[in-house]
Design a protein around this nucleic acid. Structure first.
Length: 578
RNA sequence: GCGUUCGUAGCUCAGUUGAAUAGAGCGUUGCCCUCCGAAGGCAAAGGCCGCGGGUUUGAAUCCCGCCGAGCGCACCA
């Protein structure tokens, strides 16, 4: 609103100046070329625009352009320094922003007039062969925050988890469970010690409770085979372990407030015939050839660096084949756009999946893959590499230690392109360093002030009681019927705070369009910081009722925006007391 | 070797399509509670923006080369 007012004024001035021939050789201007920015130094003003980029068209110096434009602007609000035109909003504009926050409330910051799409967002998509590790936590947090953000933006978002429940790893799981069951039954067996053989098993402890559960729920079957586990059909063990692990995973997702619309089983994809259909379709496209007994997809024709096997010599499909069918199926379900969150260790797959979509006649640009760098665990100052099955620290352990709020916030607060160092000791012992507490504290503080406004006062020295500065009814009707003209804003710190509130709108828009959710985390920290400054500089409750009302309005607006960002976007609680 | 993501303050990281004195948090040092939550605020110190070229009126940002780190490079998933 303030920003819009500013840029509109500038652009109008620009058009009039061109018409009057005051801008040298410049004959036209396309709206949107000049981008308003927040000056680094607040002394310059609230917003600024740099006109240097027009110099090449006007063929006159940036300073002259700026001064020419100033003739068309309100000199009380605009100043020129070098090639910059600086703007300082008047109090009316600031108060109007507060009014906007109250009017829109939960919808404050929702972009208007934007193109929206029907999006399928796929993330985590782990094997159901064990508990989530810390790395999965990053995709869980990022995915669910991104889903919240895109929905708020206006998109229709469908969240899906692709279960890799087909293929050899499920066999490995079943065989590993067999060993654990035999151990529980008293047999002296163990996993192979040879490293290459050991890779065919999941030797983690987590299958022990699964084995116990299996024994107590399959007494009859075990009696039938006289406790000879080798006589039990492997598929029984595979299914049992798989279902158990899926359940464990989903319970943790619930706890993390990660809500999928659907869990899509790879196995059903095979069973439905969609995978073989896809292979046939690719064959018809003429991009399949045979070599060494296997079927190859000529993905190099579409920019991949080499061709890929689509059907192995033994007749089975590769993982890629199913993934191609899965992505084709997503588009067949009518989505405009597919967004996948993948770990950077899968980046080699981007080209081949896009190639396959193109070969099948789909638009590969509908697939947007967000590659996330991995998570390093830092224990006692030492980095522990998160190899696939070694040094596994489970996500559940982490959540137990630091809580859901901190997990979600920490996993979301870094650019997806940077490796996330998760210092577990620091997260455990020193909660002060958690930015999430800083933000939550600001919210609790705002709530506390608002409680005091409607509470009876007691003089500490005399013990004398005085009525609440405002009654609850008075406060509620003040907020719900708020008019910008009701308040007089006088304080400079309030200016910065209100401008920060306005920034929420552009942060939401940019964050959603670039899929960079960490900017929301940064923003909410900055807003909290501005609020803490404001709090220290200004007493809200005072005998000057007009001033108090103005400040109460600001506190209420800040509380609203922090709560919206935390609860509706980041999925982090906004406590009223801590 | 090829591909890819990085390299900015002691540490962890921001830095929009190039533009005003390169920013924040943590840590360090010094201040600020008779009064709405000090889990806070204010201030200071701390930088060849990995290195070297190039483009530009102007480069942390764009281009090239080099150095260093992570992740890939299966008829595994």
């Amino acid at each position: 609103m303030i920003k819009d007012y500013f840029i509109n004024s500038i652009e109008k001035a620009l058009e009039n100046a061109i018409k009057d021939g005051k801008l040298g050789q410049m004959t036209e201007y396309t709206r949107g070329t000049l981008v308003p920015e927040r000056p680094k130094n607040a002394d310059f003003g609230d917003y600024a625009v740099n006109v240097s980029s027009l110099a090449r068209y006007a063929r006159i110096a940036p300073v002259q352009i700026a001064n020419a434009l100033l003739e068309y602007l309100d000199k009380a609000q605009y100043t020129v320094v070098g090639g910059f035109i600086n703007f300082k909003a008047d109090k009316k504009l600031l108060a109007e922003l507060i009014e906007e926050v109250f009017n829109k409330n939960k919808d404050f910051g929702k972009p208007e007039n934007v193109k929206t799409e029907k999006i399928i967002l796929e993330y985590i998509s782990a094997n159901p062969t064990g508990p989530f590790h810390i790395g999965h936590g990053r995709w869980a947090a990022m995915g669910s925050v991104l889903a919240n953000l895109l929905k708020f933006y206006g998109h229709e978002v469908y969240q899906e988890f692709y279960i890799n429940d087909a293929g050899s790893q499920i066999q490995k799981l079943g065989k590993s469970l067999a060993i654990r069951i035999r151990q529980e039954l008293g047999e002296n067996v163990d996993f192979p010690t040879d490293e290459t053989e050991r890779k065919n098993f999941y030797p983690g402890d987590y299958l022990i409770p699964v084995a116990k559960d299996f024994i107590s729920s399959h007494k009859e079957l075990l009696a039938e085979v006289q406790n000879d586990v080798s006589k039990i059909d492997l598929s029984v063990l595979c299914d049992f372990a798989k279902e158990y692990e899926e359940k464990v995973q989903r319970e943790l997702l619930d706890r993390l407030r990660v809500k999928f619309d659907n869990f899509y089983s790879e196995l059903t994809l095979h069973q439905s015939g969609k995978v073989s259909e896809c292979v046939e379709k690719l064959k018809k496209s003429g991009k399949i050839y045979e070599k060494d007994g296997a079927q190859w997809f000529k993905s190099s024709d579409y920019g991949d660096d080499q061709d890929r096997v689509i059907k192995k010599a033994d007749g089975s499909n590769t993982y890629l084949t199913a993934d191609i069918a899965y992505h084709a199926d997503k588009l067949n379900r009518g989505f405009d756009r597919m967004i996948d969150i993948w770990g950077a260790d899968h980046h080699g797959y981007v080209a081949r999946v896009k190639a396959s979509l193109e070969a099948l006649g789909y638009d590969p640009n509908k697939l947007e893959i967000l590659l996330g760098q991995l998570v390093n665990l830092v224990i006692n100052g030492n980095e522990v590499r998160m190899g696939k099955r070694k040094n596994m620290v489970t996500l559940e352990d982490l959540v137990d230690e630091v809580g859901v709020d901190a997990t979600r916030f920490w996993m979301s607060m870094r650019n997806i392109d940077t490796t996330l160092d998760f210092d577990i000791e620091l997260a455990k012992t020193n909660t002060d360093e958690n930015p999430v507490f800083y933000v939550q504290y600001a919210h609790a503080r705002a709530c506390s002030i608002l409680r005091h406004v409607v509470s009876e006062r007691t003089n500490i020295e005399t013990g004398e009681k005085s009525p609440a500065p405002m009654s609850e009814d008075e406060l509620n009707s003040f907020i719900s019927g708020f008019k910008a003209s009701d308040v007089i804003l006088t304080v400079e710190t309030a200016r910065k705070l209100i401008l920060k509130l306005e920034e929420y709108k552009s942060v939401i828009k940019n964050s959603a369009e670039t899929r960079q959710i960490y900017t929301i985390c940064r923003y909410v920290q900055e807003l909290a910081s501005e609020f803490h400054s404001f709090y220290n500089a200004n007493r809200v409750i005072s005998d000057d009722k007009e001033m108090m009302k103005a400040r109460v309005a600001i506190v209420w607006a800040v509380k609203t925006v922090i709560k919206n960002a935390l609860e509706n976007i980041l999925g982090v609680t906004a406590p009223e007391k801590m």
